[in-house]
């Protein structure tokens, strides 16, 4: 987008009640993640579940509170690309560490 001299800022028409609803959803998910962590034992799947719930919460915050829902593709690109790089960092670091073969037995 280049200079167009627009003076009008696009406003997002969110109302208060939708924010309240989002907050309640976040609270519910938090309670849910704590409960599943304490009460349910599904071994290593617990961390997976916790991360899925955290990601749902994070997406809700980003989409609604941070208005990502209303943003253009460019903002989406720069919101997601760092996550991809983070994935690369974690993935290759783990891959490297756990495929090492000890030289001395």
């Amino acid at each position: 987008m280049s200079i167009e001299n627009r003076d009008h800022i696009e406003e997002h028409h969110t109302n208060i009640w939708s924010y309240v609803f989002v907050l309640l959803a976040l609270f519910t998910l938090t309670a849910f993640t704590v409960l599943t962590a304490i009460k349910v034992d599904i071994g290593s799947l617990n961390i997976v579940l916790a991360m899925i719930i955290a990601s749902v919460k994070a997406s809700i915050v980003a989409l609604f509170f941070m208005h990502l829902k209303f943003e253009d593709k460019l903002t989406w690109l720069y919101a997601l690309y760092p996550l991809f790089l983070l994935f690369l960092l974690i993935f290759f670091t783990l891959m490297e560490t756990f495929t090492r073969v000890p030289v001395l037995k």
Binding site: M1, I3, E4, N5, R6, D7, H8, I9, E10, E71, L74, T75, Y78, A79, Y81, P82, L83, L85, L86, L89, I90, T93
Partner: peptide, 30 residues
């Protein structure tokens, strides 16, 4: 600059900065 450009620029700039922050914590997450 038009107000809308300034507004967009500031918001976009902050999103870029948030990407930086994610990768700053990224080292710890890794």
């Amino acid at each position: 600059l038009g107000e809308a450009v300034t507004h967009d620029a500031a918001k976009f700039g902050m999103w870029l900065f948030l990407g930086t922050e994610i990768l700053l914590f990224g080292g710890l997450f890794a």
